[in-house]
Design a protein around this nucleic acid. Sequence first.
DNA 1: TCTTCATTTAACAAAAACATGAAATAACAT
DNA 2: ATGTTATTTCATGTTTTTGTTAAATGAAGA
Lengths: 111, 111
Amino acid sequence: MGIHVVFGALADPTRLAIVERLLSSGDLTAGEIAAPFDISKPAISRHLKVLEEAGVVERRVERQFRVFRARREGFAQMEDWLEKSREFWNDSFDRLEKIFAEKGRPDAEDD
Amino acid sequence: MGIHVVFGALADPTRLAIVERLLSSGDLTAGEIAAPFDISKPAISRHLKVLEEAGVVERRVERQFRVFRARREGFAQMEDWLEKSREFWNDSFDRLEKIFAEKGRPDAEDD
DNA sequence: TCTTCATTTAACAAAAACATGAAATAACAT
DNA sequence: ATGTTATTTCATGTTTTTGTTAAATGAAGA
């Protein structure tokens, strides 16, 4: 589906706040999620849909409520992407070290 | 500035591709960055501005070129946010363990 | 200075995102 | 069945994002 969709889901302040609250509070109903915000319930409902479609939260029906919960796999996707990026950082650090070693001193004045 | 700005910067497929290329290739000029894409240079220029304002890349002037590079601090922000989230996951796992322990059954495979 | 190459800013159009109130649906209780 | 509570879908308006082309700016060289 693409990691950019996950990033997009977390790019909105309202959605980010929802996710952070779900992380700290565990399961919450749509109504509980909407309560602290000044925006309408339809708007929150859409945000929840975006988060669900991105795989960041999951929804289940319990009695007359829809209960939401943060979803591990969504976070795992980000972890993986960042892990891959970290490798690149390490690689380029290695390249720099090699260059320094060959030149014999860390800050040579060239080009 | 808010982590959601960083997420927003990476939410666009073109910008994500730019960042990934900068990670693997090191420094690139605006022109080199624009080359593989089908969209106009002004459009790429704006994407680069968004990435720069989010702190994900940095720009410097070298001869007649603008050279871009991925920026460690931008990634560190995400690492920190994910690290914080990971703590919450661990905490809720602890809570679950405690509940199982009280029930006398450490790993019940019920649904 | 005049030209050229590299890139950004400006002006604008199309598409997407985000909000709202009203109506529809879902689950449950009476 | 009818009503009540919980939530989503619909129709719509506004703002933001993303793209385009044309013009402006920046740096370098003749």
